[in-house]
Design a protein around this nucleic acid. Sequence first.
DNA 1: TTATGAATTTAGACATGCCTAAAATAAAGA
DNA 2: TCTTTATTTTAGGCATGTCTAAATTCATAA
Lengths: 220, 220
Amino acid sequence: MTMTTAEENYLKAIYHLSEGGTKSVSTNDIAAEMKTKPASVSDMLRKLGDKEVIEYRKYYGVNITEEGKKRALQTIRKHRLWEVFLVDKLQFAWDEVHEVAEELEHIQSPLLIQRLDAYLNYPKFDPHGDPIPDEFGDVRARPRVALNEMEIDQTGQIVAVKDSSAAFLRYLDKVGAYIGARIKVLDKVEFDGSLEILVDQKKTLFMSKDVAANILVIQS
Amino acid sequence: MTMTTAEENYLKAIYHLSEGGTKSVSTNDIAAEMKTKPASVSDMLRKLGDKEVIEYRKYYGVNITEEGKKRALQTIRKHRLWEVFLVDKLQFAWDEVHEVAEELEHIQSPLLIQRLDAYLNYPKFDPHGDPIPDEFGDVRARPRVALNEMEIDQTGQIVAVKDSSAAFLRYLDKVGAYIGARIKVLDKVEFDGSLEILVDQKKTLFMSKDVAANILVIQS
DNA sequence: TTATGAATTTAGACATGCCTAAAATAAAGA
DNA sequence: TCTTTATTTTAGGCATGTCTAAATTCATAA
């Protein structure tokens, strides 16, 4: 069973929207992610349901199946391997690679991906720090550290929070330290363990040791 | 003005069918080349005519325009650069690369091609010995030598004949030494200058110096 | 010059993937 | 429970690119 480029893109979006939660994903959310209209999404969900890569109950959103997850991870694997290629071999900057990888990921050739993987020396993470699934869809989680344990000049990406209270999340949102933000430790104050952080290469912000201890980071 | 993958493929086919001759290319020939039906070709010719990459007079075949030639050569450039990448970097065999390159050539990113070209060290020929057009569409013709001038162990590809009489072409066809065949000189007889040739890595054949002098080869 | 046959084009269908507008459904509040 | 509102689906249309079958055009040979 082959999938079109559009089908692969929808499945990838559904996979990403499913990550973390166990709840079904809504038509509206998929439409927003794919930058299409809900009506187009309904059409596609019927098709993906027929192919049994998602479980689709009209009006109740979708859940991705095991088969669907496997497929999505293969596409993600290809995307991330190409990103490594573009950065490591062709000198692209890490923030220039996404669009091109979005096209390259749909090339159909298992041999190509196998050879590319070997050529890149079996990388485990892409230039954004995201893990590259292996050919079976298994991913190696990158070890997380609390932000307050990082040293000056180390960089990474915020991936989670320990305290997910609304108040804390509101605070993070306010200062611009969202999940996914790329950060660098500019300074650490000996006296109280507070930190100065550079967010997304532009904004600096100060936070107490207690706040930093609640933020989980993967280092890069 | 952007072109779809299908349009690019048709234009490339028309370019190849135009090579050499100055005559227009027929709908039937394009259909054969593209493995589609003449009716589908007619549809596409109208579209390509509207875009002014071909000159299309109903019932009289098509001629490619200068703009069309430029576009076709860009696609061919991408195809051949990817072939070099697959063979030089990913250890593909020269006869395994065509299908994959056929997909890769449609990736839209001038920067990618520019970087790939540099990374491959600005190759002038692809693994089949075909010239790679530069970014302006100019091609460097590979120098041709008569087969009888080649030395033992040298390899190349038959690209033309000096004597194109029907009798000679019939002879070539009979022994399997068609235009495009990849050959290797296995032995040369001092006494009469006759040669032993390996064709397409499987068939060996003997030919006189006079026959060999009529066969033009690009060396690889 | 006209008829015949081959090449080509047109007409009408179908699949994919998108859209807008209208209808149907679910969920939440009175 | 009933009604309102937001979400979702369906209906119908459009563009691309394919097909078969029918109509048209060209070119050749009687």
